[in-house]
């Protein structure tokens, strides 16, 4: 139920864009990932290696228009030469049932360490990206996306 749009069973459905809210309310037993779950995934990948802020541009809507299809663009600053490139980028969402979203592996032939995908977001949460450079250094970035049941026209 959680990640699907809610199909109204009544003839008259609720107002004010209640879809997302009801979807959440109808699946109260789903265990969501947490910041700790994201940290655990990262520990599996990189141990206790330090991560610096910067280099990563995480482009996400401030407010999701549709929690089932949230555009995510990640762009890591790098010359992308044989000697200096971005090897991998991992993206996590700390409020989804499972924290992993996508892992990219780039090469110098990629030209740009940038990629776009569409993701599901079950609720308002943080999206976290970690980039591994060819020399082994790590960078991280975080952005919050609000998943709302809707405003009121205007």
């Amino acid at each position: 139920m959680q990640l699907r749009s809610w199909t109204p069973s009544r003839r008259e459905t609720m107002g004010l864009g209640l879809t997302a809210l009801l979807a959440a309310a109808l699946a109260p037993c789903l265990v969501m990932a947490t910041e700790e779950a994201v940290a655990a995934e990262l520990k599996k990948l990189y141990g206790d290696k330090p991560m610096a802020d910067g280099k990563i541009k995480l482009d996400l809507p401030e407010i999701a228009e549709n929690g089932l299809v949230v555009p995510l663009n990640v762009d890591v600053e790098s010359p992308m030469t044989d000697g200096d490139y971005v090897k991998a980028v991992h993206v996590f969402a700390d409020g989804n049932p499972l924290p992993q979203v996508v892992t990219y592996k780039f090469t110098p032939q990629s030209g740009k360490a940038a990629a776009s995908v569409r993701m599901r977001l079950a609720q308002t949460q943080n999206v976290i990206a970690v980039a591994e450079m060819s020399n082994g250094t790590l960078y991280t970035a975080k952005a919050q996306v609000k998943v709302t049941i809707g405003g009121c026209g205007g």
Binding site: L18, L21, A25, E62, G150, G151, C152, G154
Partner: peptide, 28 residues
């Protein structure tokens, strides 16, 4: 509870301190 959740959600669309997180019109 659902009614409170609706009011909270709409209120944040107007009164979130960051205008980029605002949307829509006045309070329901």
């Amino acid at each position: 509870q659902q009614l409170k959740d609706v009011l909270e959600d709409v209120a944040d669309n107007i009164f979130n301190a960051d205008p980029y997180f605002q949307g829509g019109g006045d309070m329901v």
